[in-house]
């Protein structure tokens, strides 16, 4: 059973690596941000599976932090400044 969890985590890690391609190539900043968000949720999945397989319940808490803080980045990214748009 543990092997299965690790195998599933391996698969999720593969999808994470695929998402990294999107972060790297873009083309737009919104694409990158979106892909980073996807990395966050597959990271949560990996952490859950690792926590179950390795028997480290504290990893569930790490997953919770992942979930909480993924939003902050998106909010910071989409935030508009009033004085912005003046350049170029």
């Amino acid at each position: 059973m543990d092997e299965f969890y690790i195998g599933a985590a391996l698969l999720l890690l593969l999808t994470m690596a695929g998402g990294l391609v999107r972060v790297a190539v873009g083309p737009s900043p919104a694409d990158r941000m979106m892909a980073a968000q996807l990395l966050g949720s597959s990271g949560i999945g990996i952490l859950l599976l690792l926590a179950a397989a390795l028997g480290i319940p504290a990893l569930f808490d790490v997953a919770l932090i992942f979930a909480l803080l993924a939003v902050i980045n998106v909010a910071a990214f989409t935030r508009r400044r009033v004085d912005e748009g003046s350049g170029a």
Binding site: M16, I56, V62
Partner: peptide
Amino acid sequence: RRAVMLFIAFTLTLALIWA
């Protein structure tokens, strides 16, 4: 900006390594 977003992704994988 690209560097920052890549850095965020890097941090996520690094956290996985710590885990």
